[in-house]
Design a protein around this nucleic acid. Structure first.
Lengths: 332, 332
DNA sequence: ACTGTTCATGCAAGCGGTTGCATCACCAAA
DNA sequence: TTTGGTGATGCAACCGCTTGCATGAACAGT
């Protein structure tokens, strides 16, 4: 049916193993033969069957990226999507495919199947999936966690940004701009990265200080929570927001109460969504280079696939993008 | 190394072909044998090697989703991400893997390689990739276009939402709310879906009417363009925006000029981004069910994979979600 | 001229499944 | 009993490529 390596070999007058060697370039082949083989391949429009290759070589030629997405919008999360973009880029440059799988909507164990059925040569996992039971099943199969796993083990390989430090620079910035009563808004405390952000916030403020407003992650919730707090006598004059959605809720509450941002209230939010620059006022952001995160994760994964070693933890620093929302207190 | 079907066969005291038949369930096997085989599989923790399976069966067990993404944020595009989510769901229910590939950042022809190297059994393509040259190479390989291809051919299978009708309901709604001079804001005219939206807008207005503001798709551009137009003597009193970003630019311009939205200016935008509900004012939206779009595309693709027939074009209608931004003219 | 290397290539055994055909036991119908 | 059918299973080829080992030619060293 399709053109095979044997057809090429026949046309070039050589053995199929020679053709294979030409394709893979890992043997000495006479220039003359090489040329004939290339000509034959071109003439027949030959494309090697990647499945047969995988079977013979024992490598699937794909890596898997697992997401823990319950609803459709989880995929549009910039963290995931930018990382994915970068991962795909690295994979493509290595001739690898990227396979995505939603860990949340499967019945069985997606991850185990992906590895045990040899569908992928390595995995990029979200921290939520990393539990002892899984780790046992995984064994020394190459994987990298995109984020910090809750159960820290020295043999787990991960890439994350420094959430604690991100909060610290946010708080420091707000303090430098003259804000004195800084609250932390948002996020499920269940999530590891949120806990770390809160910890960084508290650390920077000094012991026991601070107000942490926990929300369920929705804009409404952030709106309601801040509305309540801002009505109090001793209201905070600045907020570090766990994400852009929380900031949106906050901005809305400020508008409703006639509080000016900046001036009355300073705001810094995590994650540089495309729209963050265009809110009213533009949001100051703790920026995380999620592309770089993805790139590093992919590179680390390939290193592990190649060498079955290279156990590393990579922590990237967050940067601050100051915009109007955190301008000096009392200015307008 | 790994457990194979032969190991299972040996333990169960049968031939490997019997084990294969048990796994695939497409032959009569005595209950007794079946049980022994299952027991052996469980005992050895056997997982069939999907690569070997693919080779023997001639099916890769994966579908490919191609994106045309130049920058990292293209992946976070709700259109893409919600569709992808739905596609993955359908694929998973069929035991298929989803492989993503960026058509824009590859050197060679991603699409051709994906099919010719047998990496996928079918493809979901963006309309931008559908050119005659490719179609020839594709032959009768199963694929579905997610969007309307520019070069319409009756044998091309696609799923799209009705962009013309989307504009029409937007205009009709604004008219019903008392707005009289409605402009269309945004979008590269190069993109097919934008052209269709503009066409629908013009059609609903009647011949030759209307103002179309073309932008490069950025918020800045939309901002600048609307700022200029709104300063004119005879300014439009409403806008249909090609996307949420354009609406953001518009809202900013209105704020700066002291125009109230709604009241002075009415706004309806395409695409229901999560934040659209929380802008100031909340945006009225032409809503496209991208999840459904993805689901239909995947189902259609599987139908074609199964039967190599089922040539269809599916067009879904858009709906309107009225919010504050298009409230009655002159109200406040 | 003889032997040891090196280079280029062929041979054939896998990789781990699937599947058409053959086989055999068992049972019903003639 | 003979014949035909049917259900359960084995045999072995095959899917298309990779790779260790064998072979033979060419060449250099002595």
């Amino acid at each position: 049916m399709a053109v095979t390596i044997h057809d090429v070999a026949r046309l070039a007058g050589v053995n199929s193993s020679t053709v294979s060697r030409v394709i893979n370039g890992k043997a000495t082949i006479s220039p003359d033969t090489k040329e004939r083989v290339y000509a034959a391949m071109k003439e027949l429009d030959y494309h090697p069957n990647s499945v047969a290759r995988s079977l013979a070589s024992g490598l699937s030629g794909a890596i898997g990226v697992v997401v823990d997405a319950r609803d459709a919008d989880a995929f549009s999360n910039v963290f995931f999507s930018r990382s994915l973009f970068a991962i795909e880029k690295v994979a493509q440059s290595r001739g690898y495919q990227v396979l995505i799988a939603n860990g949340a909507q499967s019945r069985g164990s997606t991850i185990e199947n992906l590895m045990k059925e040899r569908k992928v040569d390595g995995l990029i996992l979200p921290p939520t999936t990393v539990r002892p039971s899984l780790m046992e099943a995984v064994g020394d199969f190459p994987y990298v966690v995109l984020g910090t796993p809750d159960t820290l083990r020295s043999d787990t390989c991960w890439v994350d940004n420094n959430n604690e430090q991100g909060s610290e620079i946010a708080v420091r910035h707000l303090q430098a701009m003259g804000y004195q009563s800084i609250a932390y808004l948002g996020g499920y405390q269940k999530r590891g990265f949120t806990r770390r952000r809160v910890r960084g916030y508290q650390k920077q403020l000094g012991n026991g200080e601070g107000i942490v407003l926990t929300t369920d992650g929705t804009v409404e919730n952030a709106h309601a929570a801040t509305l309540a707090v801002l009505r109090q006598q001793m209201r905070p004059d600045a907020f570090v927001c766990n994400d852009n959605l929380a900031a949106f809720g906050l901005l809305k509450a400020c508008r409703e109460l006639g509080l000016s941002v900046p001036g009355d209230v300073g705001v810094v939010a995590f994650d540089n969504y495309p729209l963050a620059e265009y809110t009213d006022p533009p949001l100051s952001i703790v920026d995380i280079d999620t592309s770089l995160l993805g790139e590093q994760a992919a590179q680390l994964l390939f290193q592990r696939i190649d060498t079955h070693s290279g156990n590393q933890q990579i922590m990237l620093s967050a940067g601050l993008i100051p915009r109007l929302s955190s301008e000096r207190k009392g200015k307008p």
